[in-house]
């Protein structure tokens, strides 16, 4: 019952956001601010995530596939395909759910409990357009960009790990990676990140926008926002895989 009510509130917030997304002048400035916070500021952590995902994948695949009958290029194929199709999107999103989602929920939650949202509304602002729309848009626009970063650094990290550990020479790695490189995987990764970006920012906005109960309430909605974002990202991952593969 409660969940249905939440779903209803969430949907109506999204509807409001969609309706007010035409008021570009209201959120133009905020949009660029959010694009920077979601995209530009997240690049370092995503680079880190990419490198480690790729290198760990390579080392572990090399360990698991240690057999004379399996050519080394298979490792490159497995690592690059996993990264492009799944890891670059999902692991980055889980990290961003913590980074972006928590920030968004805290910002909006604090604004709500300190009446800043009321202040905006009372000045004649459309607070949804002013606060929610730029954040969700930034998520939708920047997550795919971050996917590129994660994918490139993931595969790069994989090549580097294979080279430095002496398990897979870069040429073999690349040969495998190229042999099983399907552009559709990249498209799929983009679609995933697009959806994840929407989920994380919209859920966090919702949780923050309807926060109440002072500092404690903000903390609670931030936690909820992060946890729900992660859960929905994983669910969406499953649904997308079922639908598109």
């Amino acid at each position: 019952m409660n969940a249905l009510k939440e779903l209803g509130n969430y949907s109506s917030l999204l509807y409001q956001a969609l309706r007010s997304s035409t008021e570009f002048s209201t959120y133009r400035k905020n949009l660029f601010q959010e694009l920077v916070k979601v995209g530009y500021d997240s690049v370092p952590i995503i680079v880190l995530v990419g490198i480690f995902t790729g290198s760990v994948m390579t080392l572990q695949s090399a360990y698991q596939l240690e057999s004379a009958f399996i050519p080394l290029s298979t490792i490159g194929a497995i690592v690059s395909e996993s990264i492009l199709i799944e890891l670059a999107a999902v692991i980055s999103s889980l990290v961003l759910a913590g980074k972006v989602g928590a920030r968004v929920a805290t910002e909006l939650g604090t604004m709500r409990v300190s009446e800043q949202i009321d202040a905006l509304e009372s000045m004649g602002f459309n607070s949804v357009s002013f606060l929610v729309v730029p954040r969700v848009l930034a998520g939708i626009l920047m997550f795919p960009v971050l996917y590129i970063v994660a994918a490139i650094f993931g595969i790069g990290g994989g090549i580097a790990a294979g080279y430095f550990s002496g398990t897979v020479p870069p040429s073999d790695f690349l040969q495998g990676a190229r042999m099983y490189f399907y552009p559709w995987n990249v498209v799929f990764g983009f679609v995933k990140m697009f959806v994840f970006g929407f989920i994380i920012t919209s859920v966090s906005c919702y949780k923050g926008y309807y926060a109440r109960g002072g500092a404690e309430g903000v903390g609670k909605s931030t936690t909820n926002a992060t946890v729900l974002s992660c859960i929905f990202v994983l669910l969406a991952d499953f649904v997308l895989a079922a639908l598109l593969l």
Binding site: T110, M111, S114, E115, Q116, D118, A119, E121, S122, M123, G124, F125, N126
Partner: peptide, 19 residues
Amino acid sequence: QRRLRQKFGILFQGSALFD
């Protein structure tokens, strides 16, 4: 509604300054 709201100025309890 929003246009009408601009006839009002509100001083909120906690001032509600944008931090």
